[in-house]
Amino acid sequence: MARSGRRLTLAGSAAVLALLLCMRPAAARDALGVWEDWGAFRDSAVPRCYAIAMPAPSSRPRDGVPYMTIGTWPRRNLRGQVHWRLSRRIAPGAKVTASVGGETFELMASDAVAWAQDRRMDAAVIARLRSAGTLTISGKARDGRTFRDTYRLGGAASAMDAATVGCVGL
């Protein structure tokens, strides 16, 4: 179901849906749409809405299934909160950065998750997501090797907008 002129990719749709089936029971979510590599979902039980994507496939080692979400929690008055599940567990004290649209952000991170330092950074990352082609998360894994998770951003703006609109009234 492509919208706003975006081309739906079968591989992107399958990856997003497979990821969601692994995360929680499917009955808890309503699909709002899939655009290229990005999907948007509403979970009325929480309540929350989110856009989600997996990074491009990689032949490098991974400790888990990485993904990125941009979430909205209407009852908490939170909107546009970025979160990453990293492909590798990070080394103690290692920096994790997000590079998008010519700008690099140093993220907060713990074990295998990362997030923006504050709401201002959330907003800056999201603004860059809307016009950039890719976003790369990088850091040092516990084994000392550098890891990179690269996300294609085609469809990201549509998925973020659908997630925001999907939470109206929750």
Rank of each mutant, 00 (worst) to 15 (best):
M1S: 15
M1K: 08
M1Y: 13
R3I: 04
S4R: 03
G5L: 08
L8K: 03
L8I: 07
L8V: 03
T9V: 05
T9E: 08
A11H: 00
A14R: 15
A15Y: 11
A15R: 15
A15K: 14
V16R: 12
L17G: 04
L17H: 11
A18M: 09
M23G: 02
P25D: 13
A28Q: 08
A31L: 15
L32V: 03
G33V: 01
W35M: 09
W35Y: 13
W35S: 11
E36T: 04
E36G: 02
W38V: 02
G39Y: 12
A40N: 13
F41S: 10
D43Y: 04
S44V: 09
V46F: 11
P47M: 08
P47F: 08
C49F: 11
A51W: 02
A51C: 07
M54R: 15
A56P: 00
A56G: 04
P57C: 00
P57T: 00
P57E: 04
P57Y: 01
S58R: 08
S58N: 06
S58G: 04
S59T: 14
R60M: 10
R60E: 12
D63T: 07
G64Q: 13
V65M: 15
P66V: 12
P66G: 09
T69Q: 14
T72N: 15
T72L: 11
N77V: 00
G80E: 07
Q81L: 13
H83G: 14
H83Y: 15
R85I: 12
L86Y: 10
S87D: 01
R88W: 06
I90T: 06
G93C: 07
A94Q: 08
K95N: 11
V96W: 07
V96Q: 08
T97R: 14
T97Q: 12
T97K: 14
A98T: 11
A98Q: 09
A98F: 10
V100W: 00
G101K: 02
G101C: 02
E103L: 10
E103T: 14
E103N: 02
F105L: 07
F105R: 07
E106M: 10
M108D: 12
S110V: 02
S110K: 01
D111W: 07
V113G: 02
V113S: 12
V113W: 05
A116H: 00
Q117A: 13
Q117L: 06
M121Y: 05
M121T: 05
D122G: 08
D122W: 10
A123C: 00
V125Q: 13
A127K: 12
A127Q: 11
A127H: 06
A127C: 01
A127V: 02
R128N: 10
R128T: 06
R130P: 00
S131P: 07
S131G: 09
S131T: 15
A132D: 07
G133P: 03
G133F: 06
T134I: 12
T134G: 04
T136E: 14
I137F: 05
A141Q: 07
D143H: 06
D143G: 06
G144P: 03
R145L: 01
T146V: 11
R148F: 01
R148D: 01
R148V: 02
T150L: 01
L153T: 04
L153Q: 03
A156K: 00
S158R: 04
S158K: 03
S158I: 01
A159G: 11
A163G: 09
G166C: 03
L170Y: 03
L170E: 09
